[in-house]
Computed example of a mutant assay.
Amino acid sequence: MTGTIAEVAFPADEFALGKTLDALDTVRFDIEQVVAYNRNQFMPFVWAGTDDRLGVETAFEADESVRDFQLIGGFETESLYRLEWIKDIELLTQILVEENGTVLTASGKDDTWYLQLLFSEHDAVTRTHEYCRCRGIDLDLQNIHEFSKGRTERYGLTESQRRTLQLAYNTGYYSVPRNASATDLADSLGVTHQSISEKLRRGHSNLVRNTLALNE
């Protein structure tokens, strides 16, 4: 049996933090982890990408989907909160409880949530989509692909790109000051300087596209 990854989008007012996203339309929220305490109660850990902590907490207090929140850590440009949602999140119940799925990534901005979901089987995606259709949940299924080649596939990397990036990290190519040059990497792998440059650029592009830019 092969796992399946589904990338979906849906309106925030059909999920959670609808008023918060509307009030803070330039702020991006990333769910770090969702803890299910029982079938209908979920407590997510959410990153708020802004230095306006007061604005975030004021929005949480006014958001009818938030029962309570706790600041876990505050940093210069982002803060981590644990939230308790007051409403029954039907979609999470279907994904996490009924289909034994996992939320790999979840980001909210403007009025939309973007989720990357992992299911143990392809039919679970079909059932989840049908569940949403029957209940009027506007789930936009943007992409589906099989989870079959280990961790590198999740980030869109080829095996060659993964080895090159790993070598670059291990040898200090990304250190400040730099401890290894592209020429050093090329010599270690027995390839040309141009080949290393292309692998690094394409590897970086794939990493950014499949992590930071996935939900933009």
Rank of each mutant, 00 (worst) to 15 (best):
I5C: 04
V8S: 01
V8W: 01
F10T: 04
A12M: 02
A12R: 03
F15D: 00
F15C: 02
L17A: 03
L17W: 05
L17F: 03
K19P: 01
D22E: 13
T26K: 11
R28C: 15
D30H: 13
Q33F: 15
V34S: 05
A36G: 00
F42E: 00
F42H: 06
M43Y: 14
F45P: 00
V46L: 07
A48E: 03
T50R: 02
G55H: 10
E57D: 04
A62K: 09
D63A: 05
F75D: 07
E78A: 11
L80N: 11
Y81G: 12
R82F: 12
L83Y: 03
E84K: 10
L91G: 00
L92C: 13
L92N: 13
V97Q: 15
V97M: 15
E98K: 08
E99H: 08
N100L: 08
T102L: 12
K109D: 06
K109C: 00
D110R: 11
D111T: 13
T112K: 06
L117G: 08
L118G: 03
F119S: 08
E121C: 12
E121Q: 14
H122I: 07
V125M: 10
R127H: 07
R127F: 06
R127L: 06
T128D: 14
T128S: 13
T128L: 12
H129Q: 05
C132W: 03
L141Y: 04
L141P: 08
L141S: 05
E153M: 08
E153F: 08
R154Q: 15
G156Y: 03
S160H: 04
R163S: 11
T164E: 02
L165H: 02
L165P: 03
A168T: 00
T171G: 09
G172H: 09
N179I: 13
D184A: 06
L185E: 00
A186H: 12
A186D: 13
A186P: 10
D187G: 01
D187C: 02
S188A: 10
T192F: 06
S195V: 10
I196L: 01
K199R: 15
K199D: 02
R202H: 13
G203W: 07
G203L: 02
L207K: 00
L214K: 10
N215G: 10
